[in-house]
Design a protein around this nucleic acid. Structure first.
Length: 110
DNA sequence: AGCGTGACGAACT
DNA sequence: TAGTTCGCCACGC
């Protein structure tokens, strides 16, 4: 059974613990792919919206990045602040401190 | 079956 | 620091 790329992305997002964030790059590395934009697109589709914390995914610079809904970015920041992550000017203050990295060993669907 | 487009980024110059 | 270029998977036509 081969798992679709999207399934792995959503699965990876669900692995992110509360109060932590990850980057598209980390996910791309986790899935061994370079298609960072694909991840954004897939996360944007987000059929598992409440199950997949897409707001915990940020750019490698620590910036919130874009969002399917322009005003959705604002909500993203609010949600992150609720998680205990401080965000300023669309950027995570203690970004590296709250950055969560995946373990390759965690991959089981391959 | 083949071609073309989409997307919440990243890396390079 | 800013601007430009690349790339990947999935899906529509």
């Amino acid at each position: 059974m081969k798992i679709k790329f999207e399934e792995m992305v959503w699965d990876a997002l669900k692995k992110i613990p509360k109060g932590k964030v990850t980057t598209y790059k980390e996910i791309g590395d986790y899935l061994n792919t370079k298609s960072y934009r694909l991840i954004g697109k897939i996360v944007g589709k987000n059929p598992y919206a409440p199950k997949v914390p897409c707001h915990r995914v940020v750019k490698s610079d620590g910036t919130i990045g874009g969002y399917t809904h322009p005003k959705g970015v604002k909500r993203k920041i609010e949600l992150l602040k609720e998680e205990g992550i401080e965000v300023k000017d669309n950027k995570i203050v203690d970004f590296k401190d709250v950055l969560f990295k995946f373990d390759k060993k965690d991959i089981k669907g391959e």
